[in-house]
C-alpha cells in the first residue's frame, strides 16, 4: 500500500516559519490538488516531501520510507526520489540533451538500463504524452507546453509510484495549459498518485479527488473539491476562493 503521510511538518527558513504543523495523508491512486495564495508554502511542502529541502519538525512517510527532521541522508533521499517523480514550474529540462535523451538519462544512470533500453522506454513515454514526433528536438526548439510534457515523461521514466507537480502550468500561455493538464488527467486514470500544486481551480474541480487549501503555512481546509469550493467553512477560504475564481 503506497501512501504519503505527513505528520506535524514544520519548516523554518531564515527566521520565518514556512510550514506550521502540516497534517496530511495522500492515499494510493489519489489526486490531491493544493491551492493557496503565493507564499503560502505550497512549493516548500512538495520540496520537503521529495527531500530536496530538510525540515525542522514532524515526519514524512513515503511508502515505507520515513523522512525525519534535519539533513536527509543521501541514500534515504535517493530512495524517496525513486518513488516520487517531480515536475517543476520552469520545466528544468536539460538544455544540452535532446527530448529523448532528457527522458532516457535517469533510467540509464539510476536504473542501470542499457542505452537502447533507456531510449526505447523514452520513446514509449514520449508517445504517452503525445510527443513521439519531437523526440530528436532540443528543449530550445520546443514550445512551453511541449517542454512540460517532456518533463512529465522524464519523471515517469523512473516508474515512480507518485508524481509531485509544482505549478506546472504557471509558466505557460493559457492556450497551452490544457495540453499539459490533459496529460495529468490521463495519468490519474492510470492510477498514479499525484500531488498537484496549482492555480487552476477548474482543473482541480474536474480532476482532483480532494482539494487542500494552504495559507500561511497552515492547511485551512481539505475535502472533496465540490464541497470545498462551494461550501467553504471559513471566511479566509471564502475570501481566497473569491479572488481566485473571479
Amino acid at each position: 500500500m503506497f501512501e504519503i503521510e505527513i505528520r506535524g511538518l514544520v519548516k523554518r527558513l531564515g527566521g520565518r516559519t514556512i510550514l506550521r504543523g502540516i497534517e496530511l495523508t495522500i492515499e494510493q491512486g489519489e489526486t490531491l490538488a493544493v491551492l493557496g495564495p503565493s507564499g503560502s508554502g505550497k512549493s516548500t511542502l512538495l520540496r520537503c516531501i521529495n527531500a530536496l529541502t530538510p525540515f525542522d519538525a514532524g515526519q514524512i512517510r513515503v511508502g515505507d520510507i520515513v523522512l525525519r527532521p534535519g539533513k536527509v541522508p543521501r541514500d534515504v533521499a535517493i530512495q524517496v526520489r525513486r518513488q516520487l517523480g517531480m515536475v517543476f514550474q520552469d520545466f528544468a529540462l536539460f538544455p544540452h540533451l535532446r527530448a529523448i535523451d532528457n527522458v532516457a538519462l535517469g533510467p540509464r544512470l539510476v536504473l542501470g538500463l542499457t542505452k537502447e533500453q533507456a531510449r526505447h522506454r523514452a520513446v514509449q513515454l514520449l508517445q504517452r504524452v503525445g510527443l513521439q514526433h519531437r523526440a530528436e528536438a532540443f528543449p530550445a526548439q520546443l514550445s512551453g507546453g511541449e517542454k512540460q510534457r517532456v518533463a512529465i515523461a522524464r519523471a515517469l521514466a523512473m516508474e515512480p509510484k507518485g508524481l509531485l507537480c509544482d505549478e506546472i502550468t504557471s509558466a505557460l500561455d493559457p492556450e497551452l495549459k490544457w495540453e499539459v493538464l490533459s496529460v495529468l488527467a490521463d495519468l490519474k486514470k492510470d492510477g498514479l498518485t499525484m500531488v498537484v500544486v496549482t492555480h487552476e481551480v477548474g482543473f482541480a474541480r474536474r480532476v482532483a479527488d480532494r482539494l487542500c487549501i494552504l495559507s500561511d503555512g497552515q492547511i485551512l481546509e481539505v475535502g472533496p473539491p465540490q464541497q470545498v469550493l462551494e461550501n467553504p467553512k471559513t471566511a479566509r477560504v471564502q475570501q481566497f476562493l473569491a479572488r481566485v475564481l473571479t
Partner: peptide, 22 residues
Amino acid sequence: PRAQWEAAASLGLTPTQTFRYV
C-alpha cells in the same frame, strides 16, 4: 541554474552523476 541540480536530484542522480552528465 540550481533548478538543473534539483531536476537531476529528483530523478535520483547522485551529485557526481549530476555534475558529470548535466
